[in-house]
Design a protein around this nucleic acid. Structure first.
Lengths: 197, 197
DNA sequence: CAAAAATAAACGAACGTTCTTTTATTTAAA
DNA sequence: TTTAAATAAAAGAACGTTCGTTTATTTTTG
């Protein structure tokens, strides 16, 4: 029995992410990917059922990593301000540490794949988040509002900031933008001001 | 001389948007598009130089429409709260009126096409926005902050709310979410609370 | 040696694009 | 008013290429 070379699978996954980020899903072809990863096209099919399965597996894997890193040091029972700060810093760190993977996820989230794969995903992330919010509302550390409104006000600004940071161009006509810790902290304070009673 | 049938070009554009929204850029093939629009593949090349030019033209056109509708009834000299309200309502109306086009733009914005096409676009939108913000800061109706931070706090929550509204599934494990005017108004008030001195 | 990994080569299908021909419409000479 | 040249739109079929995937074979290793 010959054992699988795990390096091969990792390389395939990494190169796939690179290709998708650089050229979009359009640009991800199995033959080009094989060449980029230094394997035969047929080898890819040992590890992945087909092209869609490849994308799906990368997506799920990244979803899991993201959830795990976002929840590091986080407890749904935390006080609101502390919990928010932990999450903001975790998310920011993740996005800035793995810009490629982040780009991949962003592209994923806005493509038809997202709805296609959504149903299958089971993550402990949502429930933790829900508990955290309900706790905070009950303690009167957070105003009473629908979960979607909370989510939109609490995290959308963070992701937009990160997108500004990562886009080399910045807003057209604006200067370049660098997201430092101070800016992050200041923006978080604005968001907290909006959400606290 | 035979005249162009303008219906043809419009149909091609519409079907292209539909295909991209339903199947992603992956799913947009010239031959399938031709069939969907009821024309010959060669006809598409009368109106568009090539596949990329097709996407680019649809993008620019939609960019323009979006800017125009967002700036309707808006004046950079407006008071902050009123200006924000006008922009929020305009954006929300646009997104809810043209969900397909909105989806197309979202997909566009997160694909490699965005950076590719960005440099060429010239819109009066950015300058109007910049003036509005600087005015508001000077009048002390808006706290002093970088444009990117302002943008992130002021509009990212709105777009996230709209995305929730449009996704049939909602957050996994959450109920369905419908964005009504009251929710919109309440969220805007939260954002204003964050941004006003 | 048994068995799975890995490959090279090839499959039909679909891709973006173009070539050639036909069709519709305007122009203007008869 | 008729008619034919002129021209661009539109179509259909085909181009060579690349696509995702499979088959047949070889290589590696428990």
């Amino acid at each position: 029995m010959r054992l699988r070379d795990e390096t091969k699978e990792r390389t395939i996954r990494e190169k796939a992410i690179e290709m998708i980020v650089r050229e979009g899903f359009d640009g991800l072809s199995m033959q080009k990917l094989a060449k980029a990863a230094g394997v035969s096209p047929a080898t890819i099919y040992i590890y992945f059922k087909d092209r869609e399965d490849l994308i799906r597996q990368i997506y799920y894997d990244e979803m899991l990593t993201m959830s795990t890193e976002t929840l590091a040091g986080f407890d749904p029972g935390m006080h609101f301000e502390e919990g928010m700060r932990v999450q903001w810093m975790n998310r920011a760190q993740y996005c800035l540490k793995y810009p490629l993977r982040m780009h991949f996820m962003e592209q994923m989230r806005h493509s038809p794949f997202h709805e296609k794969f959504q149903g299958d995903a089971r993550n402990p992330f949502s429930t933790a988040m829900k508990t955290f919010v309900l706790n905070a509302i009950e303690r009167k550390e957070l105003i009473k509002l629908p979960l979607e409104v909370y989510w939109s006000v609490a995290y959308a600004p963070l992701y937009q900031l990160i997108k500004f940071h990562q886009s080399k161009a910045g807003m057209p006509g604006w200067g370049t933008f660098v997201l430092d810790e101070k800016t992050l902290e200041k923006t978080l304070e604005l968001v907290l001001k909006a959400l606290q009673p």
